[in-house]
Simulated scan of single mutants.
Amino acid sequence: MYEHLVPVPRVNIDNMEELKDGITFVTAYFDLGTMKKGFQNNNYQGFNTYKNWINAYSQFNNSVIFFTDSIEMETLFRDLRKRFPLYMTRIIKIDKNKLWSFKLAPHIKKVFAEPWYPKFPPNTINENYSCAMHAKYDLLEIVINERQYKTKHLAWIDAGYFRDKETKVFSLETPPDLKKDHIAFMQIDEFQESLTPEDIIHTNMVWIAGGMFLGQPDYLLPFISDYKSAVNSLITKRLMGTDQQVLYIMYSNYKDILVRVPIQTYYHKCKCDWFFLGNLCRFIWERKQWRRPSLAYFDAMTL
């Protein structure tokens, strides 16, 4: 599916040689109220859900840029990050309705209102949830254009990505096999190139998980540009879901958009771990922390 992507185009960013090794993470919380996730009757998520999940950022030893429209979440996040140097946390209060992604809300609402349209809560029911998924790419683009980072890699990470209670400081590092001209995602299901946009939207299909993705800024910019074009194109065709469906459509046989930047997929054997990419990046860091026994230890074993 990438035959035409040689060489992969990139945007010239003048400060690339000054960047340090590491990953800067971009995340966000927008107050969308409480909404049902999936078809289980008791699966609802809202402010209190994210308030619990976001506690893990108090132990997250990477630079983080956090966008929000919630004063309460802004205050909480600032308090969670106080153990780290100030330069490692940037909190940006933002009016979501001024973003490209949320300006799409009236158009997406019309798509979802069609009587024949599939109902997957909240993906194809709540237009603001769909907008929040598109905002990932919007916000990453802002960060890159405003040069708000000092690392060679940038990543989007959902505010609720870390769901376990963290008691020790941890960090995420890039996998050693990461290709610099690719965008890394976690693969959930087998890629089927022949699917139509209607197939993907109407059955809520997922190829790669949108909770975390990783790349260099000079390749993320053309990738984001292609993503925005795909969203706009699909809306004109009365089709929309979340970013996961848009990404699948982009890299399928959808001829309206010629994608320029390839995807590098990572996956668990069972392809059931939606957080595998983050877990892998954490393992890369943890492996460096392991203490090796001294040579004297091995001498003692020969006695």
Rank of each mutant, 00 (worst) to 15 (best):
N123R: 03
S130Q: 03
M301Q: 14
F47A: 11
A300D: 11
N41A: 14
E173A: 09
A132T: 07
K98I: 04
F162T: 01
L258H: 13
V11Y: 08
K152S: 09
Q148T: 13
M212G: 09
K110C: 02
I157R: 06
N12S: 14
E286W: 08
E286T: 07
P222M: 02
N41T: 15
N232C: 13
G241F: 04
R260N: 11
F47S: 11
K237I: 08
Y137I: 07
I91T: 08
M186D: 15
A184R: 06
D189E: 13
N42K: 04
P106S: 02
S229K: 15
L247P: 00
I125K: 03
F102A: 00
T174A: 14
D138P: 01
I157V: 11
M186N: 15
I284R: 08
F213I: 03
W207M: 11
S294P: 11
T75K: 14
L277V: 01
Q187S: 11
I23D: 02
D273Q: 05
L234W: 01
E190F: 13
F283S: 15
L139W: 02
I249A: 11
I157A: 10
D218K: 15
V11W: 05
S130G: 10
Y219G: 10
T49D: 12
N123Y: 07
F298Y: 10
S171D: 05
I13F: 08
L239S: 07
F223V: 01
A56V: 04
Q45L: 11
F84L: 05
Y2G: 15
R10W: 05
S294T: 13
T174N: 09
L221Q: 06
A184T: 07
G241I: 03
T151F: 02
Y87V: 12
F223L: 05
L234K: 01
Y248S: 10
D21E: 12
D158K: 01
N62V: 01
Y248P: 05
M88E: 12
